[in-house]
Structure formats: structure tokens, C-alpha cells
């Protein structure tokens, strides 16, 4: 069943990507074409076939020591904040989460 505009609107809202009405149409067309391309996935009998989530053979149990800053990766606060669009003091700053209206609260 093909995806509708409403489906795509829902996906875009979930993925936090705003779309204009025109973009919504294009995206709808694209997604339906892409999904068609994926059909071969379902062409095989996959009963009893284990999935391979990891293309790394038997690699397992990779763990690191509990040593503070063993590899010198920690960042100073200035480095940490330097790519942020908005900060206050030592913190990252975001606008109101629920929406701030004058007179609220």
C-alpha cells in the first residue's frame, strides 16, 4: 500500500524535518518509488535465516577500562560549547520546550 501525504507528514514530524506542501508531494513520490526498489528484500524465503546486524564476524565483548580520560578525549567547557548556536554561561541553551506565551505560568 502506497504511503499517503498524511503518512509522510507523520514521518516528517517524527523525524523533525519540516516540509512545505510542495516538498510533501515530492517526498511522497520519492518514498513510494524508493520502497518499490526495496521489493527484492521480500522475494526470498528467509525462514530460519539469522540476521547479520554486524558485518564483523565473531567480534564480540568489546569493552574499555574504567579509567578517567584514558585517551585524552575530554573537552574543556569552551571547546564543548564552541559550535553551539546559543549558550548561557557554561550551559547550552534551547528555547521553551512547550512554547512560551506571555502571561504563562
Amino acid at each position: 500500500m502506497a504511503l499517503t501525504r498524511d503518512d509522510v507528514r507523520g514521518i516528517a514530524s517524527y523525524a523533525r524535518i519540516a516540509l512545505t506542501e510542495d516538498e510533501l508531494d515530492e517526498m511522497c513520490t520519492y518514498l513510494n518509488a524508493a520502497i518499490e526498489l526495496l521489493a527484492p528484500i521480500r522475494a526470498y524465503d528467509l525462514t530460519d535465516v539469522e540476521p547479520t546486524f554486524y558485518p564483523m564476524g565473531e567480534l564480540a565483548n568489546v569493552m574499555a577500562a574504567d579509567e578517567p580520560d584514558e585517551y585524552g578525549c575530554m573537552l574543556g567547557v569552551e571547546e564543548a560549547l564552541k559550535n553551539a548556536a546559543s549558550t548561557r554561561g557554561r550551559a547550552f541553551r534551547v528555547p521553551s520546550i512547550l512554547g512560551f506565551k506571555e502571561g504563562d505560568g
Binding site: A80, R88, G89, R90, A91, F92, R93, V94, P95, S96, I97, L98, F100, D104, G105
Partner: peptide, 12 residues
């Protein structure tokens, strides 16, 4: 609390 807040600050 979150309701009525004008902004939020984040400490990671």
C-alpha cells in the same frame, strides 16, 4: 518546571 518556561539550559 517546564510549563511556562521561556528557555532551558542543558548540562551534559
Amino acid at each position: 518546571r517546564i510549563g511556562g518556561a521561556s528557555e532551558s539550559l542543558i548540562d551534559y
